[in-house]
């Protein structure tokens, strides 16, 4: 039997993923994360009198801290598998992927375990984040003069 014919048998028998429900969940949870981020930003600028530019960094750090803490406490993976992209796409997803890798390899030592593996999943986010930041920065300088 050729591969295409077999693929048809496979497709006939496997269940469809529920795209509508998954997308709705991700939209709502992701939106809620946005609200939390904005609230934190307002909190830092209004109440603590931090400049907006610095406050957004603090807001990101706070979300990373919460994502990492909840992962370490062992229940965040269940939230992530329920909300899917709602929690993976925001910065909490980065924190979760990083901390879960660190937890996984902590028994193999600080250097060869955690050190070598902490960015196993998130390494590409960092790499392509930096690369694209460089190019967008370049475009901005060339088009708008910085």
């Amino acid at each position: 039997m050729d591969k295409e014919k077999y693929q048809k048998i496979v497709d006939k028998n496997i269940p469809k993923e529920n795209v509508k429900i998954n997308a709705t969940k991700a939209f709502l949870v992701g939106g809620f994360m946005g609200i939390i981020g904005q609230l934190l930003l307002d909190l830092y600028t209004t109440w603590l009198d931090i400049p907006t530019k610095d406050a957004s960094t603090y807001m990101i750090i706070t979300l990373i801290f919460i994502g990492s803490l909840f992962t370490a406490l062992g229940f965040f993976d269940k939230w992530v598998s329920w909300a899917n992209c709602g929690l993976i796409v925001p910065i909490t997803g980065f924190a979760h992927a990083m901390t879960s890798a660190a937890l996984e390899y902590k028994k193999e030592g600080f250097v060869l375990g955690i050190g070598a593996n902490i960015f196993k999943l998130t390494g590409s986010v960092i790499l392509y984040g930096v690369v694209s930041a460089y190019f967008f920065g370049l475009i901005r300088v060339l088009l708008f003069g910085g």
Binding site: W79, V80, L103
Partner: peptide, 17 residues
């Protein structure tokens, strides 16, 4: 899971199959 997929504490969702 650790060897073939993702860290155990990573919660990325899995398909029904």
């Amino acid at each position: 899971e650790k060897q073939f997929r993702y860290p155990n504490e990573y919660g990325g969702s899995k398909p029904k199959v």
